[in-house]
Nucleic acid binder design. Structure first.
Lengths: 206, 206
DNA sequence: GTTTGTGAAACGATTCACAGCT
DNA sequence: AGCTGTGAATCGTTTCACAAAC
């Protein structure tokens, strides 16, 4: 498939969220303009974003809300569920494992790990925290699609190497480090410090 | 100041992190090439990024690590500390309030709020959870620089309106909604669902 | 000889504007 | 008449390449 910009994919996710709202309100069709104004972008942008994947609208009319919902879910690959391993069961890892919206959208945490013997064996959301030492054994038996990294910075890269070696193709990284991964593995970063510093920059420069 | 791209600011944060590592290792100077390879970018990009703010290097030599550290901290506005209010003391809000790296970098959570009477009054990290109803009263007495929004999606916009009205100029938003803010207020989004869907897209399309 | 700083070139993303459907 | 789909134009970012400094 032709290369799609990251920014486009992010907007598609937003459109999906808005469409769900519109569908709840029983709206049957929607114009690119309405979708755009809801998301702080332009109608041309909406149409261009969608055009990469086909023509889903009707000229003079707009888009069918239910149809576009289906199409967007398809495009984003949300027609299935994903098995997720949480690596790190500290405060944030645990909180994420319990997060509702996670499972609701088809991302099911099936394994959760930690290194700390005091944490191993405890339960998060009915899921027993396993020793990260058994990562290889476990993932070979029951592979996961996505790993969420919530480890200390120091071990993030070595865990990543192990995950990549086990065939994990997608990593959501909360550790404040720049991960190196082999070709074919995707990483998305959630870097709290980075965003705070961007706010600091914005507050400073004006 | 001339408009600086978001991507540039994000990279500056990364450079800062790498420089801290290099400084710890006792490295005295560094070339744009070394900095670039550490962060997965190019030397030209590093030089261009820095050039927006001045010329900090020495031709033929590179950059002084300690000097560039100071300059980057200055540029990013990290020479001071920031007062942060956490809005939402659920699992994630609480976990964030306890997060070490937060305070270490000068972002100090001084207030934490919730709406739930079962949570109000409990302690997170020695900080008593306050009733979000007292937001106006509290922030007028002791203003904050940054608010971290960890509320349910439904109330995120109304809380944002109250924060903006109270003069809060920077918001880190974890709620999965697109916030509308008045001119002069900056929002950075940490949208977990969005990133997971981006991973889903990447896994689907190849 | 090495590495910066920076115009110029190349690239990529967004916006414009309008022909083509409904 | 209204709104989409899309080439063309515009705008912004990244990369190139080289003169200037050390």
């Amino acid at each position: 498939m032709r290369k799609i910009a990251d920014s486009t994919v992010r907007r598609l996710s937003l459109y999906l969220r808005f469409l769900e709202e519109f569908a709840e309100q029983g709206m049957a069709t929607i114009s690119s303009e309405e979708l755009a104004s809801r998301g702080g972008t332009t109608s041309a942008q909406v149409r261009k974003d969608l055009s990469f994947f086909g023509s889903f609208g009707k000229r003079g009319l707009g888009y069918s809300v239910p149809e576009l919902l289906v199409r967007l879910r398809e495009i984003l690959g949300l027609g299935r569920s994903y098995r997720v391993a949480m690596i790190g069961a500290g405060k944030i890892g645990g909180a994420l494992a319990q997060y509702r919206g996670f499972r609701q959208r088809g991302f099911e945490t099936v394994l959760i790990y930690d290194r700390d013997p005091r944490i191993i064996g405890t339960q998060w959301n009915g899921l027993r925290v396993r020793d990260v030492a058994s990562l290889e054994e476990d993932l070979r038996r029951e592979p996961v699609d996505i790993a969420v990294l919530v480890t200390p910075a120091e071990v993030a890269q070595s865990v990543t190497d192990r995950l990549a070696h086990l065939g994990v193709k997608a990593i959501l990284n909360f550790a404040p480090v720049q991960l190196t991964v082999p070709e074919g593995v995707v990483v998305k970063n959630m870097n709290l410090a980075l965003e705070l510093e961007a706010l600091s920059f914005a507050l400073t420069n004006r």
